[in-house]
Design a protein around this nucleic acid. Structure first.
Length: 212
DNA sequence: AGCACGATTAACT
DNA sequence: GTTAATCGTGCTC
């Protein structure tokens, strides 16, 4: 009886959960990158939520993709990319900035989605403090800015997004129709040879926050 | 140990 | 439009 109740409770948790599970990330990276648009990125800081709607993503897929860090093979840094899907890959670049990615596809295949833009929805006061002096329009419109606004750094690298007490996770959001999505080349790959430099693995959503 | 570079940002002209 | 800042990472010696 107790077991039955336990199972029902677990089922209820699964069905009613607003969170994306591991199966969401264990799929082709382009599909994950596209479908992440409109979902909600949540950063737990103790009991407080800081969050925003994801509106811009980029896919980095495998060792053959010369724009992907995994083109260098397994190194201390890229090890996370080869790990199981549904983990955070957080790396440091340009001497100043952290970048948040979600690892995708099966364990052993290195791929991830970079989170490039969100629209803040919760914890606005904390975001405003961390982005002080900048206009709201530029609070979270870049991958480095998102990590500043949500206080994401080295400590979150390799974090599992799909456990109950995750610091970072993603919730289902509203559906973004294809008519509101603009694919294009990935940003910042100037030294990367074609076709990787121009391949349209960047996804930008036109998103109108409620009431605007 | 040394070197070149980077999935950026902010402040310039 | 251009460019400086800044340092971990990966590669070579």
């Amino acid at each position: 009886m107790l077991c039955r109740i336990g199972c029902l409770w677990l089922n209820w948790r699964m069905i009613s959960s607003k969170r994306l599970g591991r199966s969401f990330f264990d799929r082709p990276t382009l599909q994950v990158a596209r479908e992440l648009l409109g979902t909600r990125l949540v950063r737990m800081e103790g009991e407080q939520r800081t969050a925003g709607i994801i509106i811009e993503t980029e896919a980095y897929i495998g060792e053959k993709d010369l724009g992907c860090h995994a083109s260098a093979g397994v190194t201390p840094r890229t090890r996370v990319l080869y790990g199981p899907p549904g983990r955070a890959y957080v790396y440091f670049t340009y001497g100043n900035y952290w970048m948040l990615n979600f690892v995708t596809e099966r364990e052993g295949f290195p791929a991830a989605v970079l989170i490039r833009g969100i629209v803040p929805t919760e914890g606005i006061d904390r975001i405003a403090t961390r982005r002080a002096g900048r206009p709201p329009k530029h609070w979270t419109d870049g991958p480095g800015k998102i990590c500043i606004a949500l206080e994401i750094g080295k400590a979150q690298n390799n974090n599992d997004l799909c456990v109950h007490d995750a610091e970072i996770f993603v919730e289902f959001g509203e559906n973004i129709p294809d008519s509101c999505v603009t694919p294009g080349p990935r940003v910042g790959l100037n030294g990367v040879p074609e076709p990787w430099k121009s391949i349209p693995w960047h996804f930008l959503a036109r998103y109108e926050p409620q009431g605007a």
